[in-house]
Amino acid sequence: MLCAIYKSSRKEGMYLYVEKRDQFEAVPDTLRQIFGQPIFVMLFNLKGKKQLVQASNQDVLAHIQQQGFYLQMPPLQESLLAQHKKQYLS
């Protein structure tokens, strides 16, 4: 199954996967507002041999089939304070 992948115009590292290109009807309005203008990245075959980097193809496919979309959040980053403490207090 092909899906379309979009990146957020507002939040770096946030991606939205939908079943068909430019089909956002299943995405809640609140999420669309937070996500901003979707920027098309690519089409991706979820049943192909190539694997996604930050999510499993099977999880993304299941979410798209159940709710019509999959939202990939940016990875959590350690706070600067925590980094400082590790560097100087270890």
Rank of each mutant, 00 (worst) to 15 (best):
M1T: 13
C3F: 04
I5Q: 01
I5G: 02
Y6W: 04
S9A: 13
R10T: 08
R10W: 06
R10G: 03
K11L: 12
K11N: 09
K11D: 01
K11W: 01
E12H: 02
E12G: 01
M14F: 05
M14P: 02
Y15K: 11
Y15W: 07
L16G: 02
L16A: 04
L16M: 09
V18F: 05
E19K: 15
E19D: 13
E19V: 00
K20A: 12
R21F: 04
D22R: 06
Q23R: 12
F24Y: 07
F24E: 00
V27W: 00
P28W: 03
D29A: 12
D29L: 09
T30V: 12
L31V: 13
L31E: 09
R32V: 01
Q33G: 04
Q33F: 01
Q33H: 05
I34C: 00
I34K: 10
G36T: 04
G36A: 01
Q37M: 08
Q37T: 12
P38D: 06
P38I: 05
I39S: 03
I39Q: 14
I39L: 12
F40M: 02
L43N: 15
F44T: 03
F44E: 06
K47A: 13
K47I: 06
G48M: 07
G48C: 06
K49N: 10
K50H: 07
K50G: 02
Q51T: 12
Q51E: 15
V53E: 14
V53D: 09
Q54W: 08
A55P: 02
A55D: 08
S56K: 10
N57L: 05
D59S: 11
D59K: 10
D59I: 08
V60L: 00
V60Q: 04
L61H: 08
L61V: 02
L61Q: 13
H63K: 14
I64K: 04
Q65I: 06
Q65Y: 05
Q65A: 11
Q66G: 00
Q67I: 11
Q67K: 15
G68W: 01
L71T: 06
Q72W: 02
Q72T: 01
M73N: 11
P74T: 07
P74I: 09
L76Y: 05
L76K: 15
L76I: 08
Q77Y: 02
Q77L: 12
E78I: 15
E78Y: 00
S79I: 08
L80M: 13
L80C: 10
L81P: 02
L81D: 14
A82C: 08
Q83A: 11
Q83H: 09
Q83L: 14
H84C: 12
H84V: 11
K86W: 05
K86H: 11
Y88L: 14
Y88S: 06
Y88P: 03
L89Y: 10
L89Q: 13
S90D: 14
